[in-house]
Design a protein around this nucleic acid. Sequence first.
DNA 1: ATGCAAATGCAAATGATTTGCAAAAAGAAA
DNA 2: TTTCTTTTTGCAAATCATTTGCATTTGCAT
Lengths: 156, 156
Amino acid sequence: MQLNAFWRIIKLMKHAINQKPDYEKELRKAGVRITRPRRIILDILTSTEDHPDAMKIFHRAIEIDDSISLSTVYRTMNLLEEMGAIHRHAFNGGPSRFEQAHGEHHDHLIDVDTGDVIEFQSDKIEKLQEEIARALGYDIIHHRLELYGRKSKPSE
Amino acid sequence: MQLNAFWRIIKLMKHAINQKPDYEKELRKAGVRITRPRRIILDILTSTEDHPDAMKIFHRAIEIDDSISLSTVYRTMNLLEEMGAIHRHAFNGGPSRFEQAHGEHHDHLIDVDTGDVIEFQSDKIEKLQEEIARALGYDIIHHRLELYGRKSKPSE
DNA sequence: ATGCAAATGCAAATGATTTGCAAAAAGAAA
DNA sequence: TTTCTTTTTGCAAATCATTTGCATTTGCAT
Ligand SMILES: [Mn+2]
Ligand SMILES: [Mn+2]
Ligand SMILES: [Zn+2]
Ligand SMILES: [Zn+2]
């Protein structure tokens, strides 16, 4: 939980300095063409703190270039996911939501009333997951932990 | 992990004795009509160990009564979920999959190669989740923990 | 048995995402 | 830059899982 705070600060500093991860270089190296739509979408992803879905990304994108199509957003999200540049979430069972893959691994707590997404990280839980998988004879490829909660009343 | 083994045995014993939870009575008490499709679907859910999706349930159902429709399966799953008789999962991002709510709470490990679903339970993790939520000022309403893994090579 | 609200089957509607295809753009080469 | 080849795009139509409108049937309290 202390580490969490640390990384949050790092993230904020990066944001302040505008030092975004250079996905363009990475993608180019992997033989991916950097097109105008892709650059715009990457910019949107690297400059937000939230977890937008395809439609929200689309709306932010057409604000910058109204010729971008929704299918391109979807295609780009699939591409970036395959390249490991973003993570895809399916909270509740709603539409896919995305966030850039940069930064520390974390899990999510979703406020069931407001929809707010709060990030957290627990080394202990990660360790326990590994132990459990190992005991069952498995190596974890990836995992998903989501807590759905409601603000606790201070009293009571 | 020891508790887990205990409950697994209980479950197997119940299954062996064919002592299914009496959902019919519960549902009736809640003012829900017990129709032929609902009885059949409930039977399917209470007599399987796996996590079938709507289509699979539909196919098993028409084997017993070929007049049952897929929409009724969907409607019934929604009803049973609201009544708390079943749980809904969305592994990977695929279609909803269901299991009866009876028995102990557990989480899932999905074999990414075979699709097998392995159930496990960890009091430690559950406790940690509570702690984390509390520290963030939240009460957990529900949660979802899924491990995606691959059988570990014994050597190496 | 009777009556009526609730549930069903079917087909058509939805919402999210994918896909085929002709036109446009990216990057390598000249 | 111009040219060339390959990839990507926008658009519309297709898919997939799931929901919904509606006329018809059914459960079940009287
Ligand atoms: Mn985690
Ligand atoms: Mn759990
Ligand atoms: Zn996040
Ligand atoms: Zn299960």
